[in-house]
Lab assay of single mutants.
Amino acid sequence: MAAGGDHGSPDSYRSPLASRYASPEMCFVFSDRYKFRTWRQLWLWLAEAEQTLGLPITDEQIQEMKSNLENIDFKMAAEEEKRLRHDVMAHVHTFGHCCPKAAGIIHLGATSCYVGDNTDLIILRNALDLLLPKLARVISRLADFAKERASLPTLGFTHFQPAQLTTVGKRCCLWIQDLCMDLQNLKRVRDDLRFRGVKGTTGTQASFLQLFEGDDHKVEQLDKMVTEKAGFKRAFIITGQTYTRKVDIEVLSVLASLGASVHKICTDIRLLANLKEMEEPFEKQQIGSSAMPYKRNPMRSERCCSLARHLMTLVMDPLQTASVQWFERTLDDSANRRICLAEAFLTADTILNTLQNISEGLVVYPKVIERRIRQELPFMATENIIMAMVKAGGSRQDCHEKIRVLSQQAASVVKQEGGDNDLIERIQVDAYFSPIHSQLDHLLDPSSFTGRASQQVQRFLEEEVYPLLKPYESVMKVKAELCL
């Protein structure tokens, strides 16, 4: 049975990233139509530049190519590739079939990587351009969430054990800070992308030097003109047959890092959902379990974690691919890159769409948070109580021993009897502590235990987050809708 299948058929496997999760716009960027249309555009740009620099290419040939950029006979191309065992030459023939007058000058002087690699770089750039505003929107939604809850005390956790208090907004800023680093890295790697350009079979530009009869300047002009037509500021000066596969490492490393950030955020949300302090959106008709109707599973956060793990592992592909590119190139890269580049971007696209949807509907339960604080705060307040007693004339050592005994009794009630923490009640009825009984409410005010959390939130948002989001103001209103 021949390899390949009808990918629109229910009898043929289709990647869930495309069929179930990723956005239509990201799927289109990695589609065959987008790819092969870009090949034709690159052939047109090459012909236009070659004509401008004096090669015998007519206006009629150029116009014929322009008129057929979208006229792609995919069936013919597939048949040609089956016959020739070469995808680029299959599309040269297919393009030439609908451009008979231009057929002889299509791909003039070029090698397969002229269309293959340059198209990949265009796709990487455009895919990054799709991700950047999506990530900015996630940051914006979380920034709104953090600002609104900047002063809401909550129990902090280290080692997932109760620690000092923080605020809900401050905790959210930990998430935002990681995503801001990801946004900066995505922008950097996007701006650092260079075009492969017009380089020939081993990167020496020998074929173009021959076409222009040894004119170095025209060869350099050709490279520059096509690079500018493709919208790049610069091209690699040095290439082998391909652009260095280190570029793929750079791009997928940034995406993998984004995956790590999203995994951490969504894990926190899942843990908070278990504590009943916070939940992701839950639709009115949504079913959490087929057997347990009360369940409210954090399905979206779980999906993000599941896909983020996949995204983090994909960076190993370009690392290994770059390491086995012998001399000017081997074909070890080809099949692998067809999979890992598309999957990385479709996965990143999915987790950003999902995280935006989550961040637009996060639900906080202040009463649950308050109750958990009441359970733990008495123990945390013991040092403040000791200091207040010393100020009232008591002995630190005597007070410490009193607190120690009462704390152990209260802990026994919590752990052995399943009761509430009654340390404060014990202190309130103990005559030894009568000098500070009137101060206990103040000493137990949760806001006095959150330090500068709310001020940190305000400063972080104003100095770091809002300036970073400013270039994306025009796209901030787009909502994230999930079908599944």
Rank of each mutant, 00 (worst) to 15 (best):
I269K: 00
G109D: 08
R404Q: 12
P100F: 00
T354A: 13
S448V: 11
I427V: 14
A260V: 01
S306K: 00
D191I: 09
R303M: 10
A230I: 15
Q177H: 11
T202Y: 02
L186K: 03
T227V: 06
K187W: 08
R329G: 03
Q285G: 07
T382S: 11
A102R: 01
V198E: 03
Q164G: 01
T166C: 10
E48H: 01
L124T: 07
P100H: 15
N118F: 00
Y365F: 15
W45T: 09
I139A: 06
A235D: 10
Y13L: 13
A308F: 03
A411Q: 15
K367T: 01
P133A: 15
R452Q: 09
T450P: 00
L174D: 12
A3V: 07
M278I: 11
S257Y: 06
D120P: 00
L179R: 03
F157K: 09
G169Y: 03
A291R: 02
L468C: 15
N185S: 09
E277Q: 06
I373N: 11
F195Q: 00
Q375W: 07
R83W: 09
D216C: 04
L355C: 12
L121F: 04
Q61Y: 12
P162Q: 15
K479T: 13
W175G: 06
R303W: 02
E481S: 15
E463Q: 15
N357S: 12
R404N: 11
V413K: 08
P133M: 06
L362W: 04
G5P: 08
R141E: 11
G156M: 02
A22E: 05
P16G: 08
P10V: 13
L84W: 12
D223I: 00
S112R: 02
G156P: 00
A49N: 01
A235T: 09
T450Y: 10
R426E: 03
P471W: 14
L174Q: 13
Y243I: 02
E464K: 01
E25F: 11
H86P: 01
L165M: 00
A103C: 14
S31K: 08
E250Q: 15
L135P: 06
N353G: 11
L443D: 04
E360T: 13
D441L: 09
D144I: 12
I57H: 06
T52S: 09
L406K: 11
H437R: 07
L423H: 09
E481V: 13
I424H: 14
N71Y: 10
C340G: 09
T354C: 07
L484W: 14
A344C: 02
L186P: 08
L314N: 03
I176Y: 02
A78Y: 08
I385M: 04
S112I: 02
S323A: 09
S12W: 01
S23A: 13
M380L: 09
G4P: 13
D120W: 11
K402V: 14
T242Y: 02
S12T: 07
W45R: 05
M225S: 05
S395C: 07
T58G: 03
M278S: 05
L311A: 07
E417N: 10
P298H: 03
D215N: 06
S31N: 15
F145Y: 12
D216S: 09
E48K: 02
L152R: 02
T167R: 03
R296S: 12
H217S: 14
T154F: 01
F157A: 10
E328Q: 02
S447G: 13
A103L: 13
P471F: 14
L186H: 11
E80D: 09
A110C: 13
L42F: 02
R33G: 07
R171H: 08
H217Q: 07
L142E: 04
L307Y: 02
V475F: 15
M76H: 15
T52P: 09
K75S: 15
I369W: 03
R374S: 06
T58L: 08
D144C: 09
S334Q: 15
S140L: 12
V138C: 09
I424S: 11
A335F: 12
Q320D: 00
I249L: 13
L46P: 12
A335L: 03
L444F: 11
N68M: 05
I139T: 15
R234M: 15
I436M: 08
S407I: 00
T242W: 07
H93C: 14
L53T: 03
N357K: 15
E283G: 05
N118H: 06
V168P: 12
H107V: 02
K170D: 04
G451L: 05
D422I: 14
D248S: 03
M389L: 12
G96S: 13
F30M: 14
E464P: 14
L362V: 08
T94G: 14
S454L: 12
E50W: 12
N297E: 00
R190C: 11
K35H: 08
R171D: 00
V251W: 13
G361V: 09
